[in-house]
C-alpha cells in the first residue's frame, strides 16, 4: 500500500524547507523528501552574508540545519532518500523513492539546481584530483599552490576569495571582459593581492595525467593559447536546474527550468519554487520566499478541492 499524504515536497533546500514549515503549520503533515542533496546549495556555501536576520553572517550548513529544525518542530516528515520517479499524470500524484511508493494530493517541487561543469574530457578525468567545484572542500589539499577559478558570477568570486586564503596565487579565468557578480564581491576580488584575472579566456584543457599541472586557455580576442600553471582548477560557471525527473510531465523552458505562473506549474496541483523555476534571482532568500508562496498556493488549492468534494459525493450518491 502506498503511503498517502496531503502534500509531498520534493527537495530540501531553502525553498523546500520553507514550504515544509508553512504546510506543516497549516496541519498538512507534509512529507519532505530531501534527497541526498539535503540542504541544497547552501551546504557548500561557507559565509552567507546576505540572509536577513544574521547581521554577522551565518554558515550555510548551520542555516539549513535551523530550517530543518524549524520544519520538524511543526511536524514535517523529512526524509533523506532520493526520488527515483514521479507520475504527475493523474491524482493522487505518485512519487517513488528507495523506500517505496507515495501518493499525494498536491506536490511541491523544489529540487533546485546543480553546479555546471565545462564538459571537457580532461575535466571529467581529473575531477577529484585537482578539478573541483567546491573550494571550501578541496582548497585545503592545495595549500601554498597556484589555483585557477573558472567563472564570473558571485559563486566564482566567493570561490576565489576562499582559495586566496590558502593558495600562493589564484587566477580567475573568465570568458568576458567584465564580471556579472555583485559589485561588492567584484571589488574584493580585484583588490585582493593574491588574485589575478585572465579576461576573455576560455578553458580548452586541463593539463595533467593524474594530477592537475596547469590550465590551457584560449584568448577569445587574439586566439592565442596560454597554459596557466596550477595544481587545482575550481569550476563555478553557473547552475543547471534539476528537472530530469519531470521531463515530459511538466512544461519546462529551453534551459530546463520549470515554467511557472506564480508557483503553479502546467499541471494543476503541482507547484514549483526556488531555483528549479527561478531564472533571475537565485538567492537563498528568494528561494525561501517562493517556498512560502508555493505552500500557501498548495494549501488554498487543496482547500478548494476539499470544498468541491461534498457536491461530487452527493452527485455520485444520487446517480
Amino acid at each position: 500500500m502506498p503511503e498517502h499524504h496531503d502534500v509531498i515536497i520534493i527537495g530540501g533546500g531553502p525553498a523546500g524547507l520553507t514550504a515544509a514549515i508553512y504546510t506543516a503549520r497549516a496541519s498538512l503533515a507534509p512529507l519532505a523528501i530531501e534527497g541526498y542533496a539535503a540542504g541544497g546549495q547552501l551546504m557548500t556555501t561557507t559565509d552567507v552574508e546576505n540572509y536577513p536576520g544574521f547581521p554577522q553572517g551565518v554558515q550555510g550548513p548551520e542555516l539549513m540545519q535551523m530550517f530543518r529544525d524549524q520544519a520538524e518542530r511543526f511536524g514535517a516528515d523529512l526524509r533523506t532518500v532520493d526520488v527515483t520517479r514521479v507520475d504527475l499524470s493523474s491524482r493522487p500524484f505518485g512519487v517513488w523513492t528507495d523506500d517505496g511508493e507515495h501518493r499525494a494530493d498536491a506536490v511541491i517541487i523544489s529540487t533546485g539546481a546543480t553546479a555546471k561543469w565545462l564538459g571537457i574530457e580532461s575535466e571529467t578525468r581529473l575531477r577529484g584530483y585537482g578539478v573541483s567545484s567546491c573550494a571550501t572542500c578541496d582548497g585545503f589539499f592545495f595549500r601554498e599552490k597556484e589555483m585557477v577559478v573558472v567563472g564570473g558570477g558571485d559563486s566564482a568570486m566567493e570561490e576565489a576569495l576562499v582559495l586566496a586564503r590558502m593558495a600562493s596565487k589564484v587566477t580567475v579565468v573568465h570568458r568576458r571582459d567584465s564580471f556579472r557578480a555583485s559589485q561588492i564581491m567584484v571589488q574584493r576580488v580585484l583588490e585582493h593581492p593574491k588574485i589575478a584575472v585572465r579576461w576573455n579566456a576560455v578553458v580548452e584543457e586541463v593539463v595533467g595525467d593524474v594530477a592537475v599541472e596547469g590550465v590551457k586557455v584560449r584568448d577569445t580576442v587574439t586566439g592565442e593559447h596560454e597554459i596557466i600553471p596550477a595544481s587545482a582548477m575550481f569550476v563555478a560557471i553557473g547552475h543547471t536546474p534539476n528537472t530530469g525527473l519531470f521531463a515530459g510531465q511538466l512544461a519546462l523552458d529551453e534551459a530546463g527550468y520549470i515554467v511557472t505562473d506564480g508557483t503553479r506549474t502546467s499541471v494543476e496541483g503541482v507547484f514549483a519554487c526556488g531555483d528549479v523555476q527561478d531564472t533571475v534571482y537565485k538567492q537563498a532568500i528568494t528561494a525561501a520566499g517562493s517556498g512560502c508562496e508555493a505552500a500557501i498556493d498548495a494549501e488554498r488549492w487543496l482547500e478548494a478541492q476539499e470544498n468541491a468534494r461534498p457536491a461530487e459525493a452527493a452527485e455520485t450518491a444520487g446517480a
Binding site: 541526498y36 542533496a37 539535503a38 540542504g39 547552501l42 551546504m43 557548500t44 556555501t45 561557507t46 550555510g60 550548513p61 567546491c134 571550501t136 572542500c137 585545503f140
Partner: peptide, 9 residues
C-alpha cells in the same frame, strides 16, 4: 572533513 558541505550531504 568538518568544513566540507558535500561530506555532510
Amino acid at each position: 572533513a568538518e568544513w566540507c558541505g558535500p561530506c555532510r550531504m
